[in-house]
Amino acid sequence: MTDASANPAQPPLRAAIIPVTPLQQNCTLFWCTETMKGALVDPGGDLPKLKAAVAQAGVTLEKLLVTHGHIDHCGETGTLAKELGLPIEGPHEEDRFWISRLDDDGRNYGIAGSVFEPDRWLKDGDTVTVGNLVLDVI
């Protein structure tokens, strides 16, 4: 990994896809190359694998982002947030029903899952910041 300031051709954002859970859903690690601060999007499970990918990329996690409340996308988000002391942003509040079922859905699908409350629900028109990046929520 090189210092982004030493390479002006470095893109402002980099990403890695990490398939997780027995359903192999794609968790995304993305980061600001200027600050090396990043976020995991949909950290549904396989936390040791996710932490290893973050360490390998040399990224400091700033937050966890959730696109929706299905077990494979957010089953272990609350566990990871507590463990690392990170805020959770998303999903839309309409997914509260799915998040409230994570314990039961985890048992039904054989995937670790625990109910959580995001620090911020997201809606169309919001923005999310990671490092110096500003992303639009659609």
Rank of each mutant, 00 (worst) to 15 (best):
T21K: 08
A112G: 11
V20F: 06
I88T: 03
L122H: 01
P87T: 11
G106I: 12
V20H: 03
G58H: 11
F97H: 12
I18T: 02
F116K: 02
T35L: 04
L29R: 02
H70G: 09
V59Q: 08
K63V: 08
K51A: 05
G90H: 07
T60R: 14
V20M: 02
L80N: 01
W31C: 00
L61S: 02
L86Q: 06
L47I: 15
I111Y: 05
H92T: 08
K82I: 03
H92F: 10
D42Y: 06
D104G: 05
L80S: 02
K63A: 09
A55K: 15
L65F: 02
H73E: 07
N108T: 11
T60I: 08
R101H: 14
D72E: 14
V41D: 00
T28W: 06
T21V: 11
P91C: 05
W98K: 14
C32F: 08
P19H: 08
D42T: 11
Q24K: 15
D104P: 00
Y109A: 10
K63I: 06
G90A: 06
E93N: 04
K82Q: 14
V66F: 05
N26P: 04
G44K: 01
G44V: 04
G38L: 03
H92Y: 11
H68C: 06
E76C: 13
A53T: 02
R96Y: 10
Q24N: 14
M36A: 12
G110V: 09
D46G: 09
C27D: 01
E89G: 00
D103L: 10
R96A: 14
D124V: 14
W98E: 13
D124N: 15
K51W: 09
M36C: 09
V54P: 01
G125E: 06
G38W: 07
G45L: 12
H92D: 15
A55R: 13
L65H: 01
T77R: 03
D72F: 12
G106C: 06
T21C: 05
L102E: 04
P19G: 03
G44E: 01
Q25I: 15
C74E: 03
C27G: 00
L102D: 02
P19A: 06
L23M: 14
R101T: 11
K37I: 01
G38Q: 03
P22H: 13
P87M: 08
L80H: 06
G44P: 00
G45A: 11
T28L: 07
V41K: 01
V54H: 09
D72N: 12
L40G: 02
N108G: 06
L102R: 08
I88S: 02
F30I: 05
A81C: 05
E62T: 02
T35W: 09
T21S: 03
D72K: 07
E62Y: 06
Q56I: 00
P87R: 10
A52E: 14
L64G: 00
G125S: 05
G125A: 05
V66D: 01
E94M: 14
R96D: 05
W31H: 01
C27A: 15
W98L: 14
S114D: 14
T33I: 04
P87E: 08
L29C: 02
A57D: 03
A39Y: 09
G125N: 05
P48G: 03
S114V: 11
G38Y: 07
D124C: 11
V20W: 08
I18D: 00
L80K: 04
T79V: 15
T77H: 04
I111M: 11
H70R: 13
Y109L: 13
H73S: 07
L65C: 00
G106N: 07
